[in-house]
Nucleic acid binder design. Structure first.
Lengths: 250, 250
DNA sequence: CGTTTGGTTGAAATGTGTCAAACTTTGTGG
DNA sequence: CCACAAAGTTTGACACATTTCAACCAAACG
C-alpha cells in the first residue's frame, strides 16, 4: 500500500471521492481534477452557507471537517452530517433553490466553490459524472436514513458505536484512515448534537466504549482496537454506504 | 376549486406529484401519463421490496400508504418515510444497485412498476424529467433530515405535531386533503416506529395534542382544528418540502 | 502562563419505555 | 346481520435511560 498511497494522495479529494462512488474513466477523472473552483479557507466553527440561502454555486470540501446542521426553535442544534474531503455538502442546491439547512466547519477547512452552471455543463457533457453526482446525493440520503434509525431506535452505546464505525469507514474509503485509526476532530458536544444526546451522556457512553476495550480516543485521534466488536455494538453494516471499494468496509 | 378538482383528479398520481415538484410542460406530463407500468395491488402490511434486493425496476405508489423501513438487530423497526400517491419510494435503486431498506404497505395499495431502462431512456430524452426525478430524491433527503432533527432534538409532543403537519401538507400538495383534513390511516404503533417512541407514549401524546384542541383524529381521519397552533407545536416550516404550489403549505 | 475550550464527575429530576391488562373498533365468516 | 376474532387504542404502575445542573479538571493555544 505504501506506493499506492502516493498515487492516491496525488489525486484531488474530488477524484478520490469519485473513485469511491463509481469507477471513473481517465477522461472523467481529468474533468473533475481540472474543475474550475474558487478555493477558500475557513477557520473552525464558521458558517459556509446558511439555511435560507439561495446559492448559485456549490462547494467541495478539500480539507477539514464540516457539518450540515440546523437550529430548531428552542436553540437546540441537530447535526445531520459530518463532511470530509471530497464531499459536496450542498450539492442539493443544484436542484433546490433554497437551502433548508446550514453548513459550517468544525475544524479549519479548505473548500472549493464551483458555479452551478459549470456543474450543469459537465452533467450535460459527461452523463456518467451526472449519474455519479446524483448517486452521491442518494448515498447521502441513505446515510440520513441510517442516522435516523440509529437515533430513533438505538440506545446511546449503539448510536455512538455506529457513528464511529461509519466515520472510520468513510475516511478509509477516501484514504484518510490507516487500518482502523484516523483523525477524529469531532468534539463530544458535536457527537451529542449529531446523535440526539447530551454532552454529559456522550462522555459517559464514550467511557463505556473505552472500558469495553473497543477504542482509544484521545486528542483528536481515534484508534479502533476491536473492529468486529465495535461493528457488533453499533449493529453496523456498511452496505448503505454503497462504496465501490469494498475493502474499505472490511 | 370544485371545477379544478375534477381536472386534477383526472391526472395520474405521478403527474400530480410532478406538478408539485416542477412546472411540467404538456409534453412532459404526457410522457409520464403514458409511462408503461405494470400495475399491481397489495394488501395491507405487505412488503413490496426488501432490504438487500437488487431491483431492475422502481415503483410508483398509485393508491394507499406505504412505508420505507428497516429492522435493526434487536428486532425494532424504524420507519423512515410514509409514501403517498405519486411517490417513488425506491427511485434510488436506479443508481444504487442494492436496496438498503425495505418498502412495504400499511394500507391496501395499488402500485405501478416501471423498468429502470424505461426510466433511463426518458431521462435521456427529457432532461427536465431527469432533473425532476433527481429533485424528488433530494426532497426525500430533505425530509429525512427533518425527521432526524425531530427525533434527535424534539420531545414527543413536538415530534408528533411535526409529523402531522408534514403529512397534511404533503397530502394537500397532491390534492388529497381538503383544508386541513385528510385520511390518516397510520396507526399509533407506526407513528411510534417513525418517531422513535413507544406505542404507549404516542397514545398519551396524541391525547395531549387532542386536549390542546389542535386536532381530531378518529377512525383513520385527521382533522386539524388549529393549524397555526399545530405548526407552532411542531416548529413546522414547510420550506424543506420545496413545494412548487406554495398555497399547499399555508 | 493565563485563558479558553473541551472533557469529566456526581446528584437529582424527568421524559419515555416496559409490562400487563382491559377496552374499543374494525373486519369477516357463518 | 350477528358474533367473534383480530387489530388498534387506552390505562395504570413502575423502571430506567438520559437530561439537567453545577462544578471541577485537563489540555490546547496564543
Amino acid at each position: 500500500m505504501q506506493t499506492g498511497t502516493a498515487v492516491i494522495s496525488s489525486a484531488s479529494p474530488l477524484v478520490r471521492k469519485l473513485r469511491s462512488v463509481i469507477t471513473p474513466s481517465a477522461e472523467e477523472e481529468e474533468v473533475l481534477a481540472k474543475l474550475p473552483m474558487q478555493v477558500a479557507s475557513f477557520g473552525a466553527d464558521q458558517n459556509i452557507v446558511r439555511e435560507g440561502d439561495r446559492p448559485s454555486r456549490s462547494f467541495v470540501v478539500l480539507e477539514g471537517f464540516a457539518i450540515t446542521y440546523s437550529i430548531i426553535g428552542d436553540g437546540k442544534r441537530q447535526i445531520m452530517a459530518f463532511h470530509i474531503a471530497g464531499d459536496v455538502p450542498d450539492l442539493q442546491s443544484l436542484h433546490l433553490e433554497i437551502l433548508d439547512n446550514s453548513v459550517g466547519t468544525i475544524t479549519p477547512c479548505k473548500v472549493g466553490f464551483v458555479q452551478h452552471d459549470v456543474l450543469w455543463a459537465i452533467c450535460q457533457q459527461y452523463p456518467r459524472i451526472a449519474a455519479a453526482l446524483w448517486r452521491e446525493t442518494l448515498i447521502d440520503a441513505a446515510i440520513f436514513r441510517r442516522w435516523l434509525t440509529s437515533v430513533g431506535r438505538r440506545e446511546a452505546f449503539g448510536r455512538v458505536a455506529h457513528l464511529l464505525c461509519e466515520t472510520v469507514t468513510r475516511l478509509r474509503s477516501i484514504g484518510l484512515a490507516e487500518d482502523h485509526s484516523c483523525d477524529f476532530p469531532i468534539t463530544q458536544a458535536e457527537i451529542g448534537d449529531a446523535l440526539g444526546l447530551s454532552v454529559v451522556h456522550v462522555n459517559r457512553t464514550l467511557q463505556d466504549i473505552r472500558e469495553a476495550g473497543l477504542i482509544v480516543l484521545r486528542s483528536g485521534k481515534l484508534q479502533v482496537l476491536d473492529w468486529q466488536g465495535l461493528k457488533a455494538a453499533g449493529d453496523f453494516d456498511p452496505t448503505y454506504l454503497h462504496l465501490k471499494n469494498r475493502e474499505a468496509a472490511a
